[in-house]
Design a protein around this nucleic acid. Structure first.
Length: 244
DNA sequence: TCAAGGATCCGCT
DNA sequence: GCGGATCCTTGAA
């Protein structure tokens, strides 16, 4: 990934305006870019999950259109950011044509540029969560975050938002607009991957409330072997086995 | 107006 | 491997 912003290349919206599992394979390897004044953070998307239509009983859209999930019903390429478990934000990229609610949850990103800023943002997020804890606890948090390998800074959906300072104010942003403060960058030719060989697939994480067949649909996609994939899920698991 | 529950992560056992 | 933190969204009263 290269070439910051105004002037940077737009991620082709057409790659998202299609069936979501196919869009997932297009999004793997693409860049996630955060521009904050003169500071630029760039990462490579290495793990995503597909949520497809109102029929998908794991999707927020299963209940029909609400104020919260309305952006999923809109045109592709926009950001759907929501709060989960009362404390973590998750970033989704809306897919498929307008009127058909679908999105890709960004589960993990491999930091490429602005690593120090990502680490700082992670630290701020964690300190704010333990604001009332003992001082030695905060010191331990500082030490731990300082020691984190760069590849672990955004290796989870909540961590992606922490490292890139993504909040609910980023909801609705057009991620295909290279001038936006948060946007996608096309996968560089040089870093192209072979989707049929290098993409791992398996069931989605954390959707225990969903019945079959949705629980086991192999709609989590990742770049096989990539060190930044969340948890210990880097190696392809047989469909039907659950991530944790 | 209220109660229930959730697309998570950390820290300690 | 499990419990806790923490608060928004939803649906029902």
């Amino acid at each position: 990934v290269q070439g910051p912003r105004p002037g940077g290349l737009a991620f082709p919206r057409g790659l998202l305006a299609t069936d979501t599992p196919a869009a997932a394979r297009s999004l793997l390897g693409a860049g996630l870019v955060r521009i904050d004044g003169s500071c630029v953070r760039i990462g490579r998307i290495v793990e995503v999950e597909a949520y497809v239509g109102t029929g998908d009983l794991a999707s927020h859209a299963r209940v029909g259109r609400t104020d919260r999930n309305a952006v999923m019903f809109g045109p592709p390429g926009h950001a759907y950011v929501y709060l989960v478990y009362g404390m973590y934000c998750c970033l989704n990229v809306v897919t498929e044509i307008e009127g058909r609610p679908a999105a890709l949850l960004i589960r993990a990103v491999q930091p490429l540029e602005g690593v120090a800023e990502m680490r700082h943002a992670r630290l701020e997020a964690e300190l704010s969560r333990t604001a009332n804890a003992a001082p030695e606890r905060a010191a331990a948090t500082r030490k731990r975050v300082a020691a984190l390998p760069a590849d672990r800074l955004a290796s989870g959906p909540g961590l992606v938002c922490a490292a890139f300072s993504i909040g609910r104010s980023d909801n609705l942003v057009d991620l295909c607009d290279p001038a936006a403060p948060l946007h996608l960058a096309p996968r560089p030719e040089a870093a192209s991957i072979s989707p049929s060989i290098d993409v791992g697939t398996g069931p989605r994480i954390g959707i225990g409330y969903a019945p079959e067949p949705w629980l086991s649909m192999p709609w989590r996609f990742w770049i096989a072997g990539n060190v930044a994939v969340s948890g210990a899920r880097r190696i392809a698991a047989p469909t039907g086995s659950h991530g944790r």
